[in-house]
């Protein structure tokens, strides 16, 4: 049997087992709803407009992701290639980096309130650090000879930055952005637990607060699927835009 088929069969078996256990009365069905109940709750959610919540959450996430990534790359390339910039910026970045981004959300609410801006900021803040450090390391590790060749062939610093330094750092940057995506999903969820009136995280939270575990599981599954999808689409996009990455040279 092919690997894929085995995988599918295992997943189906688990779902069937779950259904049986939930409905058997062995466990509290309200706290451990069956897949069929989760699906029914999901259907209700879809009818009641959870697509809007998804759209809002995803737009917050994407904006935060892009902002955090762009700033992370820009500063990472700067600190990676310039000792002066590194001397000024790296210490403060390294001081802030160990802060669990989730833990600063209450602070962000106090300082910036509960609007979309605050949520996007908390996502961007979290995304910045893995992108920055990977870009920083990647741009530091560029083989000297690439830089020298660039210097010999062009005087334009812009060309050197965009046609040598950025692509040479790209394998590392990609790793950083993928970490950023995972963090962004965590942050959008957590930032919507408090001070939100719409969003997938908000939906998960109020389902929980109303003891609707079936809704909660469905919404969580949605979140997980969106996360996996985003990561997948990112990988595909990267390979499209930078086809040479598939050779994984450097």
């Amino acid at each position: 049997m092919s690997k894929k088929a085995t995988g599918v069969i295992v997943v189906v078996a688990i779902i069937l087992l779950w259904e049986a256990v939930s409905l058997s009365g062995v466990v509290n069905n309200s706290l451990f709803p069956a897949p069929s109940q989760v699906a029914a709750a999901g259907w209700q959610l879809l009818l009641s407009g959870v697509v809007k919540d998804i759209a809002v959450s995803m737009s917050r996430l994407l904006v935060g992701l892009i902002v955090g990534t762009v700033i992370g790359i820009a500063i990472g390339l700067l600190t990676g290639r310039s000792k002066t910039a590194a001397g000024i910026l790296s210490p403060i970045i390294q001081l802030l980096r160990p802060l669990p981004p989730v833990a600063i959300i209450p602070l962000i609410i106090v300082w910036f309130g509960i609007g979309n801006g605050a949520k996007v900021f908390s996502i961007a803040f979290a995304v910045f650090f893995p992108v920055w450090i990977n870009t920083h390391i990647g741009s530091k590790m560029i083989p000297k000879i690439y830089i020298w060749t660039g210097r010999l062939l062009t005087k334009s610093w812009f060309k050197k930055a965009t046609k040598v330094i950025f692509p040479a750092s790209l394998p590392f940057i990609v790793v950083g952005v993928r970490s950023g995506i995972a963090l962004a999903f965590i942050m959008v969820f957590v930032s919507e637990l408090a001070g939100a009136s719409i969003g997938l995280g908000y939906r998960i939270s109020i389902a929980h607060l109303a003891y609707r575990i079936d809704e909660m599981i469905f919404a969580l599954a949605l979140l997980a699927i969106l996360g996996a999808l985003t990561d997948y689409l990112f990988s595909v996009a990267v390979r499209r835009i930078f086809p040479w990455l598939k050779f994984k040279t450097i």
Binding site: I109, G113, G195, Y202
Partner: peptide
């Protein structure tokens, strides 16, 4: 209608958000 934990509410009101 916005959801928040009770402990965070006074600050949210005070900040005007």
């Amino acid at each position: 209608i916005i959801s928040q934990t009770p402990a965070d509410m006074p600050a949210a009101l005070a900040s005007g958000s």
